[in-house]
């Protein structure tokens, strides 16, 4: 990891970061998270060769796992697995910066508030971004909805179209079972005015093995106005990657069985 971070330091030390990235904090965080990534969640990566060096991408992934560990896994994979690491900027929900301590820490490790201007700025600066187009709905699923993609927002396709950046579809398998039995009471969440409140017998993340699949780069036509078809295509691609991944996944006591 030290070698990888020396590359990143060279890449990011020219200017102060407009989103508050602090590489020393990120390096420390990765130092402590790497044993958990390797030994606790036993993360495996597939299709890493689909990511070409010296290119910027828009990574589009399914959201899972109640506490957004998926973003951490993908970000770490792109640093750990690639010869020339990519420091991907995860776009987080708008409520995140309002959370004391968490908001500032997320900014320090490279997360950015999810809005179109920020994403366009990231890509303009030759950096890559990670988007979860399901939003919080994808993250805060009840166990009965695991591995079923929620509706995708269109924003990411517009951004890819404007920036002329290729999309890498990403499927994460295994992160749902980190919290295997969850019930989300939508009415209660609405009443309490909070986006997610997982009701579960387990509040300690369980060591479910995680697999990350990077798909082939997808190009969105820059001249298109209606991007519904692209959004639908990408949703289908990611869903089929998840389905294939579920068949190959390693066994775990609470493995979710697909309907």
């Amino acid at each position: 990891m030290k070698k990888k971070f020396s590359i990143l330091h060279k890449q990011f030390s020219k200017h102060t970061d407009p989103w508050g990235l602090d590489l020393s904090i990120l390096e420390t965080a990765y130092k402590y998270l790497l044993p958990i990534y390797n030994n606790y969640f036993k993360v495996r990566c597939f299709g890493i060769n689909n990511i070409k060096p010296n290119q910027k991408y828009l990574f589009v992934s399914n959201h899972s796992g109640q506490i957004a560990l998926d973003g951490v896994f993908i970000s770490m994979a792109l640093v750990k697995e690639l010869k020339k690491p990519i420091l991907v900027r995860s776009l987080v929900d708008r409520f995140v910066p309002e959370i004391p301590w968490i908001g500032q820490w997320m900014n320090s490790v490279g997360a950015v508030v999810g809005n179109r201007n920020n994403c366009l700025d990231i890509l303009k600066r030759n950096q890559s971004a990670l988007i979860f187009p399901e939003g919080t709905k994808g993250l805060a699923k009840s166990s009965t909805d695991y591995y079923q993609l929620k509706n995708f927002t269109q924003g990411f396709a517009k951004i890819a179209s404007i920036s002329k950046v290729k999309i890498i579809p990403v499927a994460l398998v295994g992160a749902e079972e980190i919290f295997p039995f969850v019930y989300q009471n939508k009415s209660l969440n609405k009443f309490l005015n909070i986006p997610t409140l997982p009701i579960s017998p387990f509040y300690l993340p369980l060591p479910s093995p995680v697999d990350i699949y990077f798909g082939k780069a997808y190009t969105v036509d820059s001249l298109k106005i209606n991007l519904n078809k692209d959004v639908k295509n990408l949703k289908n691609i990611i869903q089929s990657m998840i389905n294939k991944g579920l068949k190959k996944r390693r066994s775990f006591y609470f493995t979710y069985k697909q309907k």
Partner: peptide, 9 residues
């Protein structure tokens, strides 16, 4: 505001 983009034009 919490959801301000970083480069307000």
């Amino acid at each position: 505001l919490s959801d301000n983009p970083s480069m307000l034009t």
